[in-house]
Amino acid sequence: MYGNFDESNVYPKFDISIGASHWTTIVIYDANTIVTHEAVILATAPTISICVSNATTGEPFISTIELRQFNGSLYHTDFETQFFLSLSVRINFGAETNESVRYPDDPYDRIWESDSLKRANYLVDVAAGTQRISTTVPIDVNSDERPPSKVMQTAVVGQNGGLNYRLNLNGFLGNGWAFCYFAEIEDLKPDEIRKFRWLDGNVLSGHIPALGACLSLRNM
């Protein structure tokens, strides 16, 4: 958070790098808004260098650097010794409040932003008829990335037969992975079934989420 620490009221814009590799550009639009960025890095040495540079306005700054240890299989890639993963957005769909979900609900302290927060870079063009649902029944989240049960206990349903969300990835560098998690949290009638189609590249597949269990799908 900028907070006008330099008493100039000039909102900073600068680059941040991990070692010699560009990570992202920090753009501050408001003095009192917290701006966070996440990356998944394979530590190949006892230290990691985080650098700020190329300030075009204001003074570059870092308020906090937090490190969390992940299970090595959570976001494993074949290129992790050469590249790191930079988070674009992580959304908790169907959230009941504006509050984010993190530790202790997520043992890895990942920040799951509420979909109630409308921001310029995501959650635009939400389909008409979208409804929020929730449950208090625990969800089995023993999937690859282990999303927290609290996140999986809320969801959105397309009442008109479809769901549509558009994410703005302007400025997002390199290839991207989309991780999506589904769980049936409504006790449907015996003659009812919830099924959806998932397009991965040119392959279209059908899926039926199990009651109370997390289904993890990814698209690269």
Rank of each mutant, 00 (worst) to 15 (best):
E7L: 14
F14S: 05
A20N: 15
V126E: 10
H37L: 04
V89R: 03
S63Y: 11
R218V: 00
A95D: 01
L188N: 11
W177G: 01
N54W: 05
F70L: 15
G201I: 07
L117A: 14
A120T: 13
N71M: 06
N160Q: 12
G171D: 08
T97N: 04
N168P: 06
I34H: 02
T97A: 00
A178T: 13
P104H: 02
I41F: 15
A128C: 13
F61V: 09
A213F: 05
L199S: 08
C180P: 01
E184R: 12
T135H: 03
V89W: 00
F84I: 12
L67M: 12
N92P: 03
V40L: 13
S100Y: 04
A178R: 09
S49Q: 15
S21M: 15
W198C: 02
N4R: 03
G162Q: 10
T25M: 12
V124W: 10
V126M: 13
G72D: 11
Q82D: 12
K13V: 15
H76W: 09
S134C: 02
L217A: 11
S63W: 07
P209G: 09
N170A: 15
N170W: 09
D187C: 07
D78E: 06
N168F: 12
N32I: 07
W112K: 01
N164I: 01
T36G: 09
A39I: 12
R110S: 03
D187H: 08
Y29A: 12
D15S: 14
V40E: 03
W112R: 01
K150G: 00
N4K: 05
N32K: 13
Y2G: 02
N92D: 14
I111N: 06
G201S: 01
S205F: 05
